[in-house]
Design a protein around this nucleic acid. Sequence first.
DNA 1: CTGAAAGCGCTAACAT
DNA 2: ATGTTAGCGCTTTCAG
Lengths: 342, 342
Amino acid sequence: MKNVTIKDVAEKLNVSISSVSRAFNNTHDIKKETRERILKTATEMGYYPNPIAQKLVRNKTYNIGVVVPEFINEYYSEVIRGVQDVLVETGYQVLIMESDNKVERELKNVKTLMQNMMDGLVICPSVKSGNLDYYLNEINTGYPIVFLNRIEQNFPAKKVLFNNAKWSFFATEHLIYQGYKRIYHLSGSNDLGITKDRTHGFIRAMEKHNFSKNNYKVIETGILSEEAMAIVQRLIDQNDLPDAFMCVNDLVALSTISVLKQNQIEVPKDIGVIGFTETKIANLVSPKLSSVKQPTFEMGKAAAEMLMKLINNEAISSDTIMLNGILNIRESSVKQKRPLHQ
Amino acid sequence: MKNVTIKDVAEKLNVSISSVSRAFNNTHDIKKETRERILKTATEMGYYPNPIAQKLVRNKTYNIGVVVPEFINEYYSEVIRGVQDVLVETGYQVLIMESDNKVERELKNVKTLMQNMMDGLVICPSVKSGNLDYYLNEINTGYPIVFLNRIEQNFPAKKVLFNNAKWSFFATEHLIYQGYKRIYHLSGSNDLGITKDRTHGFIRAMEKHNFSKNNYKVIETGILSEEAMAIVQRLIDQNDLPDAFMCVNDLVALSTISVLKQNQIEVPKDIGVIGFTETKIANLVSPKLSSVKQPTFEMGKAAAEMLMKLINNEAISSDTIMLNGILNIRESSVKQKRPLHQ
DNA sequence: CTGAAAGCGCTAACAT
DNA sequence: ATGTTAGCGCTTTCAG
């Protein structure tokens, strides 16, 4: 471990501990030579200031905490990259904790991070965070927190969000423009705010283009591959198939395509499919999967920048940063060989 | 933030701070009633012991640090899950840092974690960790560290590894048993120890089965999708194609399949392909990708268990835990419709 | 059982 | 420019 303290160094050089402290903190009120002499032997002795002690007295750590529900999917991994990208520049270190999608773990993580004296937090809430009161309370005491994703738009805190409804709407419209007349939305899980938003976008597109209720459906699938597969298989068995599936995410989309193929149904020739929250594989599978790319990296960056402003007491123009995505049209949703609509 | 201290509580109740401390640490030498009285008003006042101060005096944090090169791929995400799975049980909290595959960042992360007084560390080194001397030094001072993956087998430290050579050998043999007579190994990057091991396994299989040097090749591809694609395309252009590709990982395998398809070459009918370090999509793509599954979760668990033993000074039978994988044979490497070999 | 006091390693007035 | 000293918030002897 380490045990050589400021005192050891001071004694060795017959100086006071304050001088050693000064040397390390590079204050102006120390002779250059003394400083160098101290630094030199300190390094030789393997001394460096104990950050715990520093924290105790300074109340500042240059550590930022990030809590995410999981990073099994690349989504939050990319968000974290964005956060680190801006923070590392500024000399901050990023510590990460995973909540395993459990609100209790999430709260515990947040507390641990706060107790480790993180200077600020980026919180990506788990599904239905029941910790909002706690957070609100902390925010009121002045603790810098920025939320990212999966939080209500009217929650009175700094946050960065993706415009799920809008891009779900666009994705659906793309399907419509391709000429698909009967479209089912595989909607994931209804307790998730973000999937609800996607469903709204879907329905809005249906209504705008005057789809009759007979020609579209919203089907709750859950977000697991197996669940989605079972549901699509059931639709096939019941002979209840649409022209196109608009899926809540890529995993559901790929699962759907997989089942369709097993049943000798070709995508996109027989049925079109579009995903959401694009993953890298979209481009690798066959047919290549159309999907909506979320600006995960940028969202992370935006959150980190907001947090820095919060920490440095700079003005923040708006509580909420709402980011847009990209609709990547590839093969799985393109019906005819003709110039793409977008 | 928080500011109510042990002193505030003590004053409010006209007891000494030691009593408050005792109440919270639940020592035997305190009257039950006093304890309860203290705990009650303390909670009312919103007091809880400042962990930083506790750390300073206790030298124990119940925090464990994990540093990984990245978690863009699910590999390390799963490892972390394994680590957390055993640690959360024991009351430890897991803090994670990402090195972005940079050795300097890795070292900085390790230092930050040590300075935050983690009780122990799981280090997943970046590509060519140049920090080995530093680590060795820390280990010698008694700091509990367990390494995971990408570290030389003879490095004198606790570590858990995957037997890359062995399973690469098996994967290759599977291809041979399928009747493929000419096999190319797309080997990733040669500076990576683990990919070197896979190459060795490949060559060993070739030699065991008396493949002439004309009938196999090791081709360095790098680990990026684009690189692999370019190389496969070049092979096609040069009319230098094997019967089967044994790929260093799934991404390279999928990229290979993608290029082959673009050139109207069918997998596995025309050419067989097998991946490595299986990812979830292996099962979702078409053809389903054969691959070697690494026991990532179990590796994380093993590392965490080892670390716990290290921290608790329990006996550890061996420096190295070497884990085995699973060869998942799916469609991409199966030549004929006949009972599978394994 | 409880309180007083020392000390964990450091910073930051306050002196000199 | 350097040293002295009082804390930061807590645990832990040591007395009583």
